[in-house]
Design a protein around this nucleic acid. Structure first.
Lengths: 249, 249
DNA sequence: GCAGATGTTCCACGATGTGAAACGGCATCC
DNA sequence: GGATGCCGTTTCACATCGTGGAACATCTGC
């Protein structure tokens, strides 16, 4: 697996900048790269438009050119656009809202949501960011994490969103094992009172999670009399169909 | 100005991918790079998480990891966050809505808008994408373009949004000269009936446009009796203040 | 089975990226 | 005002690292 070091380095520079504007020395310190190297990389990134410097400013910031390079709303656009039809399928079959979420370090970003056909339905969570352990999408993503990463997450204090939120590390680990084995996971009123949800992870070819698809509905009718496992299987089936599909546009 | 070629190449690969998923050969053809090089770059980008491959897919797509690397909403976040106070200033002083727009190749992306305090006001245009020549933000950005780029733009057919939209290339060029000299530009009901707007460009240290700040209001009262040039000067002053300010967060 | 795709790996070559050190600016401080 | 410290940029000799043609595996469809 050949890897181009200057590219990797360029991205670690960008990563530092994503936290806010910074100068060469600053970045050099944070990345353990020599100043000269950082300066050179920044020059390159500036030419491309990936970073900018304002008129009088002495320090760099992420550039507006990134929009041009990466498309208007960045990465999830492609992903979001291509899962859309599958979300619609799921929303129709289940009668509840279906959505896409992507990992963002220790949080989960809710990207899209297709509404349920029912008049009474969950609110649109698009745009929301949630800790990994409170929602089903986060949990199924975590179920694919290497152990080490998981430990790093679990030693931190874990916030509870409702009285049902599971925050005990041991219990979470047990749960993740089950989720991983099943390929999906249920969560009952853990991130919001009155809402139950299932999610299944979207994996890349190496098995790393790049996102999750979920269905959530009001607790009084979802999953209701429907078999939780059947709904889970539905989800898994749709994910499989998605990853099989050859994308063109 | 030293520039690291592999990084430049990596970004041209990403740029191709921003148009949609593609394979190695495809990208190789579009970038004029050898297949082996493209393959190597993609491996690297995949390691980082800048691109993904789905389970069965044979082709690459922009990765959800970009969110993680570049921050949730990417580039405009930093820019948007730091101009926010200045937009508020402008909205207060002018009594109308103030916003930020960034260039996206031949279009302009409206990123943020601070509402006018008035009950009657223009709608929130955030998220909208507009051709360069119809709005004031696009025009002031164009006024900073090198001649060659401008010509490329103007030979294409230019859409009219209202009956006031200026679409004659010669007329546009004349206008851009004036805008550039003044440092700001007015547009009267050209992108929407009933709305007048001013904009001033945000420049990096080399004088290239990285965005534009604008004020727009209902035509019946804006600029009204106020002197258009005074409002323009207000805008320019605020931009100057912005670029002087040293950012930390 | 072959033809024509795909993406990946190999490897000799040298262009290209590297980083310590020198440089030039711009503050601040005494 | 000269000394000192910080900044980002440039230089330059070195060899690492990226390069790309060609060979190699798959896979698909004729």
């Amino acid at each position: 697996m050949a890897t181009v070091q200057s590219v990797v380095r360029a991205f670690s520079v960008l990563e530092v900048l994503s936290a806010g504007p910074a100068g060469v020395s600053d970045i050099s310190a944070q990345t353990d790269l020599p100043k000269s190297t950082v300066s050179r990389l920044l020059s390159t990134l500036e030419r491309i438009g990936a970073v900018d410097r304002l008129l009088e400013g002495t320090n760099y910031r992420l550039g507006s050119g990134l929009i041009e390079i990466l498309g208007t709303s960045g990465a999830p656009k492609t992903l979001g656009r291509s899962v859309q039809p599958h979300l619609e399928q799921l929303a129709m079959k289940s009668g509840e809202a279906a959505g896409l979420a992507v990992p963002d370090s220790y949080s989960v970003q809710y990207v899209t949501q297709v509404e349920s056909p029912e008049p009474v339905q969950v609110r649109d969570y698009s745009g929301l960011s949630l800790p990994m352990h409170v929602g089903p999408s986060g949990l199924v993503i975590m179920s694919r994490w290497p152990l080490e990463l998981l430990q790093h997450y679990l030693v931190r204090p874990l916030e509870a969103f409702t009285k049902h939120t599971v925050t005990d590390p041991m219990e979470i680990i047990e749960r993740l094992k089950r989720f991983r084995a099943a390929g999906y996971g249920w969560v009952y009123e853990e991130f919001a009172e009155g809402i139950n949800s299932v999610a299944a992870p979207l994996l890349d070819r190496r098995g790393s999670p790049i996102g999750a698809i979920h269905i959530h509905g009001p607790a009084f009718r979802f999953p209701g009399k429907g078999d939780p496992d059947r709904i889970g299987a539905l989800l898994v089936e749709e994910v499989r169909r998605y990853s099989l599909r050859a994308e063109s546009a």
